[in-house]
Design a protein around this nucleic acid. Sequence first.
DNA 1: CTAGTTTTATGATTTCGGTCATAAAATTGG
DNA 2: CCAATTTTATGACCGAAATCATAAAACTAG
Lengths: 198, 198
Amino acid sequence: MISEALLMQYGAHKFSVRKKEVLFHLDSRPQYFYQVHQGRIKMNYFNEDGKEFIQGIFTAGQSFGEPPLFEELSYPAQAEAVEDSVLWKLEKSNFFTLLKANPEVHLELTKVLASRLHYKATMVAEISTENPEHRLLKLIDYFKVHIYDIPIETPYLVELSRQQLADLTGLRVETVIRAIKSLEKKGELSLDAHKIRR
Amino acid sequence: MISEALLMQYGAHKFSVRKKEVLFHLDSRPQYFYQVHQGRIKMNYFNEDGKEFIQGIFTAGQSFGEPPLFEELSYPAQAEAVEDSVLWKLEKSNFFTLLKANPEVHLELTKVLASRLHYKATMVAEISTENPEHRLLKLIDYFKVHIYDIPIETPYLVELSRQQLADLTGLRVETVIRAIKSLEKKGELSLDAHKIRR
DNA sequence: CTAGTTTTATGATTTCGGTCATAAAATTGG
DNA sequence: CCAATTTTATGACCGAAATCATAAAACTAG
């Protein structure tokens, strides 16, 4: 997260997007550094027959889509507004000028990339080797502990739909619904009015 | 990749590991920055019933296992020598001193993390949504273009075993063997003496 | 308030890749 | 050089999750 003061100083602009609007497409070349000011943005991939995979969901204060800025790479997913949102947008070259002039910001950004890499390494191993229930618990606990910084023993209310859980874990909605039910029966989580608590 | 001169200057040491030796375990806390001097190291995860997933294979000049150094995180996989190898090992605190004093090295490292994030994002989406043949082609092309820097039109000889391909794509050996056969039949790649060329 | 949409739910059926068993070919190491 | 190990290969069978169909419940927007 880069402070607004700094973003403005280096010529960033705020702009609005409507729910479902696409910010950039799969395989396009990055031109800007993006940071969420308000709302929620997801990065997602669709295969040939329309199956979605969600790389990440980003909320106020979080940046996204930085990796391809650093190499001559194109985006491995598109970015789409989950709800009406306001974003900061900073020209690529200005972004690098900013980083160079502010080593502590650069270090912060490296930490963000490191933590995202940790998340991806965790999820890809889960998806490759574990069953649906295991995957879902891992994802839920990951969000709780690493994204929302809630101690593992404190109850946490999952704010993701069954479909989003499916698209984050590579499962299908029906499988998620059944696995969640089964996990409730086993006492691994609780449900009240369809909301998942763990 | 950090130059040997710089590594030495900040107190790094070289040490040897034998094939199959484990450098650090899953869930342990990182204490060092590691860089391969000679040989090959893989980072891998095993689920409860022994199914392996390979996060990456690192060769001479490449560093690995950096992300958890930047946050207070534990390793999401273990590191294991694929063959007898020699490694550089730099104390965590010295590593950060080095980065701080050498911004261009820090930027290089950020690029490495960015490119690894790109690889993981690509593979996790593949594994979640695509069939075995698609996954294998994507992996092979990724290694060719992004890891070995070979132009897509130049033939490339895959130096990974069927088992390694399986553990990198979340498949089983038998499935990889059959998919490779089928891809050969379709003309997507060629085989000579079991070696895969594409 | 209500029609329309999205989300959650559940049963029946299918399928793709996993599992199991076995063996040939290739590689390695002593 | 040869025994032991690893890698590649192939067929038969199985099963977990995907797919398909349908509907109730819960939201949402006008």
